[in-house]
Structures are given as structure tokens and as C-alpha cells.
Design a protein around this nucleic acid. Sequence first.
DNA 1: GTCTATATGCGGATAGAC
DNA 2: GTCTATCCGCATATAGAC
Lengths: 212, 212
Amino acid sequence: MAAAAPKTRDRIVDAARRLFNEHGLPAVSTHRIAAEVDISSGNLHYHFRSKRLIVAWLFRRFEDRLTPCLDAAASATALDDLWLSLHLTFEAIDEYRFILRDMEYVLNESPEIESRAQALVSRQLVAAQALCTGLADAGVLDASADDIDMLALQLVFATTCWYSFKRLMPKRKSPAQGDAALAAYYTLGLLAPFVVGESRDYLNFLRAKYLK
Amino acid sequence: MAAAAPKTRDRIVDAARRLFNEHGLPAVSTHRIAAEVDISSGNLHYHFRSKRLIVAWLFRRFEDRLTPCLDAAASATALDDLWLSLHLTFEAIDEYRFILRDMEYVLNESPEIESRAQALVSRQLVAAQALCTGLADAGVLDASADDIDMLALQLVFATTCWYSFKRLMPKRKSPAQGDAALAAYYTLGLLAPFVVGESRDYLNFLRAKYLK
DNA sequence: GTCTATATGCGGATAGAC
DNA sequence: GTCTATCCGCATATAGAC
């Protein structure tokens, strides 16, 4: 069958995602979403009976979007894999950045999401631990089991909260550096103390590429 | 003169702080604050013409509350100083935790706070750098200037975002550990890779105390 | 300073015609 | 599926008496 025009429901979801990312979840009303999609408010509520359901739907999509990134991370065995995996993850998070940034608000009005969010973080931790273990086995990292636990926690912490923190950071000259760039630069730096000799030079090379 | 009963204005500020911390800024209405203080809504608006002004006032108090903590941190030269300074800082942040936790919401409805918040983070970075430099000069840390920059950023990142992240962390058995305990445990761990031999044992001892 | 009463506006959500 | 019209409730904020 011929490729159909995007369904209204999908257009709503996508417009909501973009508006939430740009202006923040609490600042975007259902009216505004409807206006963006160029439909009536009543029509929007035909497709989603409540704003919460839009958020819930977007959260599901975020989970789906992130899953392959975690799989890629978990199977990494070289710094290049880590580099790629970080990039993919930050891109995914960026597409749904309102979820992490406005998480407190999300959880306040949609408490049923809390356990799902915690489960997602757990999966991230497992993936990060697998990633670190893989790098250690490959001789890239010199880290004890405790070090790896700590490192994995730091990695997940960074990916989860970076966009919230970024807004508070003093502005650099920042010559139009991509958003993910500084994030990846920072995150790569977390591993630096544990990267062994030869690999460390390559790590610094990768980080330098971000700063151009 | 005799000690007067707390002024209504102060009671409003303090009730607001507690309610914001507990339920989140967006979830607490001015009515609710008035009810908590046991005054009428009209009376509350006599003291603060708008909710935003309450938030602005609390932010100022947060700045004042944090300042001595930063001074203490900046002059630290031993792990004990760091330990104490972390504790003081996390206690201060805990008292006003809604500010960092609901920062996105705060900035959306009070944009004039953004530059102040960034300035506060800048001051935290300076203090953290001074702290790390002091420890390095005292021979506790073995870290290059770049390491210290990175470490300071990590410390500030942790203190700023920890309470947001905590809510998403998988629950441990957590035998009624204080909120600041896990935060300090994590933060101390950031320095571990750079702490030299003898001091590292003491660091681990300090961290162990937190986990009991 | 404090109250009661009320104005105002907005956002979420529904009803019913087309 | 889509629209127009409307309801409902809530939160901010004000007016004016005490």
C-alpha cells in the first residue's frame, strides 16, 4: 500500500515531544500542542484523553529509543565502541530530553512512571557495568570490581543528569559545539583515571576531537 | 527587647520551603502555604505579592546558606576538611533541595534567577578547584591541573544533581541511612583514583563510616 | 496585619453537531 | 475524525471591610 500521510496521532506525539523539549513540559498546554499540529483542542482529546497519556506514550517511546543504545554499550570492548555508544546514547536522550530534565514534574503528575524510570536506570547501570567490564577484560581499563561499580554509576549519573546541569554551567566561548559534544567530552573524562598507558593517549585524542 | 514570636513573613517563607521540598514547587499552591501557616490567602498576598517573590526570596536565602560552606571547602587541606565540607554542603542543599530539584520549573517561571544560579555554580567550581588544589599541595592528591579541573566539575555536578538522580536510583536495602550519607559516599568516591597511597586507606575508612 | 469575598484567567477535559 | 462551543476546577491575585 502507498505510504500514507502521517497519522494525526503521530503528529500529536511528535509535536508534543518537540514542544516539551523546547519549552518544558509544564509550560506547554494541550491547546498549544493542538495549535502546533493545526487541529482543534477537541480533536487532540479525541486521540489522547489526557495530557498524561501523551507523556506516558512518549516515555514508552523513550524506552524503546534507548534500548538499542544500551545493547550497543553493553557489548563494547574498545574505546571506539565506547565513543560510538556514548554518542548514540546522548542523541537518544537529546530527542527526549524533557523527560529527564522535567522528571520531577513528570513523576509528580504521573507517579506510575517512577518504577519504570527506575527500571530504566537499572538497565543503564547493568549496561554500563558490562561496558566497563568489557574494557577491563580487553586491557583498556585497569579497574577493580569496586572501581567498575563506581565508574558505571558515574556514567549513568552523567547521562541522566547532564542536560539538567548544563543549563547551570558557566557559558564557554563554545564555538557552536554540538550539545552532545561537551557531554561526551565530560563523560569520556570519567574513565581517564583508569585507562592504561597506550590507550590513554587514544582517549585523549578522542576527547580532543570533541573540542576541535 | 523581648524575643518576639516569629514574624508572619518568616513563617510563610519557612512553610513554603518545607512544602516545596516535600511536594515539589509546582504542586504547592499559595492556598496550601497559607493553610500551613494558618493564615488567609489574602494575608499571604499582603506579605508576598506573588508566589514568584517567595521563590526569589528563598533562592536568596539559599545563596546565603551555601556561602559559608563554599568558604569552608575552599580552605580545606586534609581529607577530614573535605569530609566536613561535604557534609555541610549537602546539609545546606538538603534544606533547600527543591531549588535544585525543580530548577527547570523555577527558571521557566522566574528567568531572572538563571544568571544567579549560574553564578552560584561558578562560585562552587572555584571553591571545588581551591579544595582540590589544597589537597594536591598537601600531598593528599596526585593530580594534574587538568585532573583538578575535571575533578572540581565532577564534585559540583554531584552536589548539584545528586538529589534529582537519587530518586531514580534502584533502592538499596538502605538501613535508614541518612540522605546525605549516600551522597557523601558517592562524592568521596570521585576523588579515590587520585588519592595517594596512605591517604587512600583513610579515604576508604571515611567512606566506610557512611555505609556503616 | 488580617480577614472574607471575589475577580480573572487558564488549562484540562467533555458534549454534541458535522 | 474533526470541529465548535462550553464546562469545570483551580490557582493567582485583588478589593475592601475590620
